[in-house]
Design a protein around this nucleic acid. Structure first.
Lengths: 207, 207
DNA sequence: CAGGTAATGATATACTGTATATCATAAGTT
DNA sequence: AACTTATGATATACAGTATATCATTACCTG
C-alpha cells in the first residue's frame, strides 16, 4: 500500500564522495517514483515524464542524473546486488545451505517491492542477466563439490542462480505464502541438493 | 549464418481461412526480418521501420497485419507454443521423463534461432510468461506424484517449467555444447527427479 | 551569515519512432 | 476478363526522448 517503502538508499556502497543534499533528494525522489509507477503499470509503460511529474522534479533535471530510464533502475540494482552478494559471502560451508536460503528469502521479504520491480524490469535493463552472471561466477568459484556424474559444473552453477531467481519470483507473485524458513528448506531440497555430488545418505527421507 | 532459417510457418495451426498469397508472403517476410534483426541487435532495439525496410515491404503495410512489434512476435510464438505442447502431450508416463527432455532439446535444436529470439524478447511480449502459464497448468494437471514432503505441488510444477526454460537458455547461449540425449538426462536429474515424491531407490547412484 | 557555487525549473527546440489516412497501382482470385 | 483486395508511396499527427539556455533558488564554504 504505502508509497513509503523501504528503498535501499540509492547511493551505492562504493566509494562515493559526499553529495549535495539536493542531488540526493532528487535521486531518491526519482527512484521512489520509478518503483511506485512500475508496480502500478509495469516498467516498460512508465515514461520519464511520468517519473518526473510524480516526483515533482523538472523533466530536464532527470537527464542531469541519468542518461535514461534503465540507468536509474541500474542505480537501484547496484545497491541490491551488493547487498545480495554480501548475504552469500558470509557462509562458506555448504551444509548451511538451508540457512543461506532462509537469509535470501528474509532479505527478499524486507525489500519485496524493489525486488519485484527488478525482476519485472524486462530485457533492456536486465537485472536478471547481471545477477545471473555475477551469481554464477561467485557460486562456481567457491563451491568445489558442484555437479555430479551427470550434471556438469557450469550447468549446476547456472542452475542454482537462475532457479533461485525463478523461485523468488514465484514466491513474490503469489504473495509470499510461506515463511522464509520454509522457503529455505524448499530452496535446499529443490535446488542445492540436486546439484551436489551423489551421496546416498543425503537422499533418505528427512523423517 | 543463413537468413534462410527454419521459421515455423507463421500461419498458426488453428482454424484459419485460406490466405491471399500476398498476405502470406508479406507476413513471412516480416517474421523472417524480425527474427534476423533481433538476432543481430536484440529485440528491443529493432524498429518497425527496420523490419519493413529489411523485408522490403511498405512501412504502412506492417500495420495492416499487426498492431505492433509484439503482435508480430506473438504470431510466431503461437506456432512454437502449440508445437511444444504437442511434444509433451504424447507421453503421459512419468518414467519417460528422460525421453521427454531429449525430445524437447531436439525440437529446440531444430528451431534454435526462433527460440533464441523468443527467449530474448524481453518483458513486453513475454514469451516466457505465456509458456510458464500454459506449461505449469499442463504439468500440474497431468502429474499426480508431483511434490514431496517438503516441496508443495504448485511450486514443483512452476519449477519444472521455468527451470526447463533456463536450462534451454543456457544451452542455446553456450552453443549447444551437449547433444539432446545428454541434455535429456540432465533435465531428468536436475529438474524432474527432485520434484517427485521421495523414493529411496530413485536416489541410488546410477552406476 | 555573506558570497560564491552548483543544482533546479521552465521553456524552446530537434529528433526518432509510432500510428493512421488516402489514393493510385499492381497482384491475386473467381 | 472482370472484380476484389493487398500493397506502395506519401502526408500527417502524435508521443516520448534528449539537449540547450537562462533566471532562480538552495546549498556549501569560509
Amino acid at each position: 500500500m504505502g508509497t513509503q517503502e523501504d528503498v535501499p538508499s540509492t547511493q551505492a556502497g562504493g566509494g562515493e564522495k559526499a553529495q549535495d543534499r539536493r542531488v540526493k533528494r532528487t535521486q531518491q525522489l526519482l527512484a521512489r517514483a520509478l518503483i511506485t509507477l512500475t508496480l502500478e503499470k509495469g516498467y516498460e509503460a512508465v515514461t520519464i515524464r511520468e517519473i518526473t511529474r510524480y516526483a515533482d522534479i523538472g523533466y530536464a533535471t532527470f537527464f542531469r542524473h541519468y542518461p535514461d530510464k534503465d540507468a536509474l533502475l541500474g542505480s537501484v540494482l547496484d545497491v541490491v546486488l551488493n547487498e545480495l552478494l554480501t548475504l552469500f559471502s558470509l557462509p562458506l560451508v555448504q551444509s548451511n545451505a538451508v540457512e543461506d536460503g532462509q537469509r535470501l528469502f528474509e532479505y527478499v521479504q524486507q525489500h519485496h517491492e524493489v525486488i519485484r520491480v527488478l525482476l519485472r524490469s524486462g530485457q533492456s535493463a536486465s537485472f536478471v542477466e547481471r545477477i545471473v552472471a555475477t551469481g554464477t561466477q561467485s557460486t562456481l568459484a567457491k563451491n568445489e563439490q558442484l555437479g555430479n556424474s551427470v550434471v556438469p559444473r557450469e550447468i549446476a552453477a547456472n542452475h542454482i542462480v537462475t532457479t533461485a531467481i525463478t523461485l523468488t519470483q514465484w514466491w513474490l507473485e503469489h504473495g509470499m505464502p510461506y515463511p522464509p524458513q520454509t522457503m529455505g528448506k524448499i530452496y535446499y531440497e529443490l535446488i542445492i541438493r540436486p546439484t551436489h555430488a551423489y551421496d546416498a545418505t543425503h537422499y533418505l527421507p528427512p523423517i
